[in-house]
Each structure stands twice: as C-alpha cells, then as structure tokens.
C-alpha cells in the first residue's frame, strides 16, 4: 500500500475468461471520502474489476484489499465493509423495496432498531416512497436501479462499489443519485463508480481511471484529463476521393484516425475551437480540397478513446460494439 489510509487498494489486478483477458493490469487506490471513476466503453473490464474487488469473482493475479483486508484470503471480513450495486439489479423481485432492504439489513446484522430507521432514511433520501410497498417485479428499470443502489448502502459501509449506477435513470433521478454519491463521499465513504458518461465522471470523481480492453489508458483528476478529453471535434465531409487523399496529406498527423475513406469523412480534434477550425478549413480550401459539409461538435466517448488509444483501439471497439 502506497498510502496507509487507502480504504480500497488494488494492485496489478488480472482476470481472464478463457482466452479473453478481461482485466490485464489495473491498479488504483481510493481513500476515505474519495470517488474513483472507472470510465470505459463496453467490454473495457469495468464490471470485471468491480466484481473482483467486491469478492464476486475470483482474482487471477494481483492484489486487492479493502480496509486493509485481503479480498482473496479474507472475503468474509471484506464483505462486512462493502456495499455493492452491480450492473444488473440484484434484488428479490417478489419482495417490496422495504422487504428487500429489511432482508439485506438483517443479513448485514444491523441491529433491529437501527435497521428500520436506516431503511426509512434511505427510502426518503432516494425517493423510493412511491413504490416502496410494491413487489420489485412491478418496478420500472430506473426504479429497480435506485432500489439496487439503496440496497448497497443499507449497512452504511465504508467502501461502496457502484457499477454504472445511473444507466437508465431519467435526468432527475440521475442528479438525485449524484447528490447521494456526493453526500456519501462527504461522510468519508470510499467509492468506486463505473460509468460510460464523461460528464458523470467529471462531476463526481476525484480521480478518473480510463480503461480500455482491460488496461488503464489514462489516469488523473478530471482537471488534468480534461485537456486531453474535452476538445472539440471538427467533422469534415469531403466532396470526392482525390480531395480526401489530398486532405489527409495536408493535415498530416492532425487528422484524427477516424478518417473514413468510405464516407469521405475526416474527424479532427481541435483545441483552439472556432479559430483553429477556420484555419484548418482555410488550409484545406487553399490546398484545393472541396468541402461539401462540416461541423464543430462536442467530443463523444469515442473521440476520447480515439485520442487516448489510437487506431488499433478503434478497430477493436468497432468489433465489440
């Protein structure tokens, strides 16, 4: 352990499923009150990482500790310290929200008196009141998701794992959940949160880990990553094939690997916004390239990954999505 106060510490974590190396080498530390954002596309290894650290999957290599206890050798101790909301809801469909929380609260061995107070508090906080007494099988996707997150918090654990907690939530529920995550953090809870949304990682995380195909491709605070991640993209539609080749020549390494010869489209990451875009367009025009269309747009997660991982990743991603 680098710092002795890390609640969750992971070193060189590895996991393979047959020939698929789902997680190759992932290390991180989360201190009390810190939120670590795991950001990555489908199949990046976010769920696999979370499941290993939360005792749900066997660890193939590397080390993980929670509260200083080894996940591999002392899972029973670790389970007393964690709350998990996995990617797919893990609640009893036939039970109501209240009954589900009562069930998990009992299994966490929360004393009776404290238990019901805690459950009521959480129901209020995450606004489950409207459906708390209906069986979970009747819930909408977002309602079930919220129940699942609340279930992870019943025991007030010092380490919480949330795997894409806001996927499928409407904007209001999403911002409520963000509020919950922030208040957990301010109470000293260490949180690992996976997401596919840049904005979410930006708003919540103290540190972001961008992972792709089982590996960390970028790491840092939102501020330090922002420069790499949040640049606009100039999308240019070229009129003909000759122009396309000519444009590639002119732009050189500036052109994003996302050039598409089929559709004659070129994506260029631009730091300088409008000025830089105009300069680029002018350069192309002067070079004799006919531009049929262009737009300046916000980066998507795809752009982030292109920027961070280069062309080989683009291909891999296209295959998996």
């Amino acid at each position: 352990m680098r710092t002795s106060d890390a609640v969750i510490a992971v070193q060189h974590l590895r996991k393979s499923f047959g020939s698929v190396e789902a997680v190759k080498d992932v290390s991180f530390e989360v201190g009390p009150g810190q939120v670590l954002g795991l950001l990555g596309p489908n199949g990046a290894g976010k769920t696999t990482t979370i499941n290993m650290v939360s005792t749900l999957l066997k660890i193939d290599g590397g080390e993980a500790t929670v509260g200083g206890f080894d996940v591999r050798t002392q899972p029973e101790v670790v389970r007393q310290l964690i709350g998990v909301a996995g990617q797919s809801a893990a609640v009893d469909e036939k039970l109501t929200a209240r009954e589900n929380l009562e069930l998990f609260g009992r299994l966490y061995k929360i004393p009776r008196g404290k238990r019901s107070a805690r459950i009521e508090e959480l129901i209020k906080q995450l606004d489950l009141g409207a459906f708390a007494d209906r069986p979970a099988s009747t819930y909408s996707g977002g309602e079930r998701r919220r129940l699942d997150v609340v279930a992870a918090l019943v025991a007030d654990p010092p380490a919480v794992f949330l795997d894409e907690p806001t996927t499928g939530l409407d904007p209001r529920s999403r911002s409520e959940l963000w509020g919950t995550v922030r208040s957990l953090a301010s109470n000293g809870v260490a949180i690992v949160l996976s997401t596919q949304y840049l904005e979410e990682a930006d708003r919540l995380a103290d540190e972001i880990l961008v992972i792709d195909r089982g590996e960390i491709v970028a790491q840092g605070t939102p501020e330090t990553l922002k420069q790499d991640l949040e640049r606009d993209v100039l999308e240019i539609q070229v009129g003909d094939r000759n122009g396309f080749e000519r444009a590639r020549e002119l732009l050189g390494p500036d052109a994003n690997p996302a050039t598409d010869a089929e559709t004659l489209r070129i994506d260029i990451p631009v730091h300088g916004g409008a000025d830089r875009s105009l300069a680029l367009l002018r350069q192309l025009q002067d070079g004799g390239v006919s531009i049929s269309n262009f737009q300046l747009r916000q980066p998507t997660l795809d752009d982030v990954f292109l920027a961070l991982t280069g062309p080989s990743s683009m291909e891999a991603e296209e295959i998996t999505t």
Partner: peptide, 11 residues
C-alpha cells in the same frame, strides 16, 4: 433474478 449476486457480496 440476480439476487444471488447480492447474497454473495453480503457478510
């Protein structure tokens, strides 16, 4: 239903 996943993460 997935509830076993939660049981597994509980003490």
């Amino acid at each position: 239903e997935g509830v076993n996943d939660r049981f597994r993460s509980l003490p």
